[in-house]
Simulated assay, not measured.
Amino acid sequence: MNKSVLLLALGLGAGACHRAVPTTKGTAPGASTSTTVRPSKEAAVKAVDFDSPYLTAKGKVQATIKGDEKSATINIRMRRDSAIWISAGLLGFEGVRALLTPDSVRVVNRLDKTYFAGGYDYLTKLLNVPVSFAQAQALLLGNYQAAPAGAALTLGTAPTGGQRVAYPLNGVIVEQLLQAASGRVEKLTLTETGSNRSLAADYADFQAVDGAKVPFAHSLLVDAKQGAVGTKASLKYSKVSAGGAGLSFPFDIPKGFQRVKANR
């Protein structure tokens, strides 16, 4: 069982591609049709978010890490604004389990018999970018991430005809492309200003889900680049449900597991 791909599976479910602290520095790249407005005019953005209070999903993560192909299965359960539960493993054996709440992160790693219980500083160090519960939830659902107060928002036309929304955030240009028909986010791109680091998340295969009015993306492709080094990972769901009946978030720490610190 490969440790790196299981942690990548955890990262895909937990929001591995977002920065947190807002700033007004930097400018968004030009759009074919653009109008710069303030965040108070976010109402002009025609984004439509996944509306179910619950989500259960099962899928497979495939990743290319330093030229090697890796894979893992992943199970996700979510109660909106309350809890995100993630289990990743191979061949029916669980390797990593995590439970995220708005103010805590708990992770059990059965690969090396360790666990973590604390705040989001753990995921920040694990994934090398600041992470919050709200950001993890938005990435998981493929929902629009609004510009923070004080950031200049640029509206334009996406290549597919929908909206293009961009704003600077903590030295990063955040760009989101919205579908013309549904208003769903179809692409999220983060480009660090003054460097050659970037990350793109593409949402595709939108399908109706029982119990939800808004289609859900059954495919997520993440492409991270840092100079000549790149990592690609895809998450494809085989089963998605919006039902919340009987949904539980089991989590316990096996005896004998060693607690790790966030700075590990």
Rank of each mutant, 00 (worst) to 15 (best):
S32H: 10
S32K: 12
T33F: 11
T33N: 13
T33M: 12
S34E: 15
T35Y: 09
T36N: 10
T36S: 13
V37Q: 04
V37H: 05
S40L: 11
S40A: 15
S40D: 13
K41Q: 15
K41I: 04
K41R: 14
E42Y: 14
E42C: 08
A44L: 15
A44V: 13
A44W: 12
A44T: 10
A44H: 01
V45E: 07
K46V: 00
A47Q: 06
V48A: 11
D49P: 05
D49T: 12
D49Q: 11
F50S: 02
D51K: 06
D51T: 07
S52Q: 12
S52M: 11
S52T: 07
P53C: 12
Y54P: 00
Y54V: 01
L55V: 07
A57I: 12
K58P: 00
K58H: 10
G59S: 09
G59Q: 10
K60Y: 03
K60N: 13
K60F: 06
K60E: 14
V61Q: 04
V61I: 15
Q62V: 15
Q62C: 11
A63C: 08
A63R: 03
A63V: 07
T64K: 14
I65G: 05
K66M: 09
K66C: 00
G67N: 05
G67C: 03
D68A: 14
E69L: 10
E69D: 14
K70N: 14
S71N: 12
S71F: 12
A72Y: 06
A72Q: 08
A72W: 06
I76N: 02
I76H: 03
I76Y: 04
R77M: 02
M78C: 04
M78A: 12
M78T: 01
R79A: 11
R79T: 05
R80E: 06
R80W: 03
R80Q: 07
D81I: 07
D81H: 06
S82A: 13
S82W: 01
A83D: 02
A83S: 05
I84D: 00
I84W: 00
W85F: 07
I86L: 09
I86H: 02
I86A: 00
S87Q: 10
S87G: 05
S87V: 07
S87C: 03
S87K: 09
A88S: 14
A88C: 11
L90A: 11
L91Q: 13
L91H: 09
G92V: 09
G92L: 09
G92W: 06
G92T: 07
F93I: 15
F93N: 09
F93W: 14
E94Q: 14
E94H: 08
G95L: 01
V96H: 06
V96N: 05
V96R: 04
R97G: 02
R97N: 03
L99N: 01
L99D: 01
L100N: 02
T101I: 04
T101K: 04
P102V: 02
D103E: 11
S104T: 08
S104D: 06
S104E: 08
V105K: 08
V107W: 07
V108K: 02
V108Q: 03
N109F: 01
L111K: 09
L111R: 08
D112Y: 06
D112W: 03
K113W: 12
K113R: 14
T114C: 10
T114W: 11
T114Q: 11
Y115G: 01
Y115T: 01
Y115M: 02
F116G: 01
F116S: 00
A117K: 15
G118A: 10
G118H: 09
G119A: 15
G119S: 15
Y120T: 00
Y120G: 00
Y120C: 00
D121M: 03
